[in-house]
Design a protein around this nucleic acid. Structure first.
Lengths: 141, 141
DNA sequence: TACTAACATGATTAACTTAGTAATGATAAT
DNA sequence: ATTATCATTACTAAGTTAATCATGTTAGTA
């Protein structure tokens, strides 16, 4: 599957914001950019998109930054992917092939499978996984 | 999920060749193009790719055309997708983000899920589904 | 043999998407 | 006022995709 940089970056930004929840200090774009490894000028646009979708709030001015607008448990990856279009979409409209045959049904079936997988993961899960991951790494040293 | 036209067309061409199996009359590009709704000039390249991968044989000359090189039960969609690169691929190489964290692991997990789904379908299944589909449609009239 | 209908191959192209930058503006704390 | 932040719009370079074009090769057949 091809995950766009945009989608990858969006999830990483959310992970950054959710990781220290419920500590809700605003995090600046610059900081998120550095920690998540996302180009700052690009990240701005992604954060604005996430804001418009209601996942984050922004705080302007000198002490500004971004915070989560919802609890991590209420941010489902399936929704993000759907709304951000992060997996591309099987745009059948432009093709001359039939849309109601075994082949198209197969593609739709796979789509459903992906959505099901994503529905099983919310930001809280992802934060927990990341914490476990960091922990496991520290034991390796 | 974004399925490329190339991939969609390839599967449709194979379905066309497998649908009347074990009748192995060569089917011409023109005929496949018409029935499957694939631009002929494009289809040629796709069929050559499928030939190089060993899924079809070509017969040149005046009575030529294409036939399956394997039985439909031996043509697995998972392989085709993998070899034709039809779903894009999560090219992490170019990104600055870490490759060994919870986010990357999630994308890999989804990849695995897709592959599992595709492993469950071979061309024989797809042909059967299509026959069922046609049958069901005819009852609707 | 010459013709013809098929497959073969490499080059090219137009449209689209993606990833990212640039320039400038708005907001709020100090 | 200054400054450090977010906001918005426009732009661009690179890559991908879908498709066509031009030309060559093969083999059946009159």
């Amino acid at each position: 599957m091809k995950v766009s940089a945009r989608m990858d970056y969006a999830v990483r930004a959310l992970l950054e914001l959710g990781y220290h929840w419920p500590d809700t200090h605003p995090r600046q774009v610059r900081e998120i950019s550095r920690k998540a490894g996302v180009p700052q000028k690009f990240l701005i646009h992604i954060l604005i998109a996430l804001k418009n979708l209601g996942y984050v709030h922004s705080i302007r001015g000198k002490t500004g930054g971004y915070i989560l607008a919802l609890g991590p448990q209420d941010i489902k990856l399936a929704d993000i992917v759907k709304q951000l279009g992060g997996l591309g979409s099987f745009d059948e409209q432009k093709r001359k092939t039939k849309k109601n045959d075994a082949v198209s049904l197969l593609w739709q079936e796979i789509d459903q499978r992906i959505i099901q997988t994503l529905k099983g993961v919310n930001l809280e899960d992802l934060c927990n996984r990341q914490r476990q991951h960091i922990k496991a790494l520290s034991y390796d040293i």
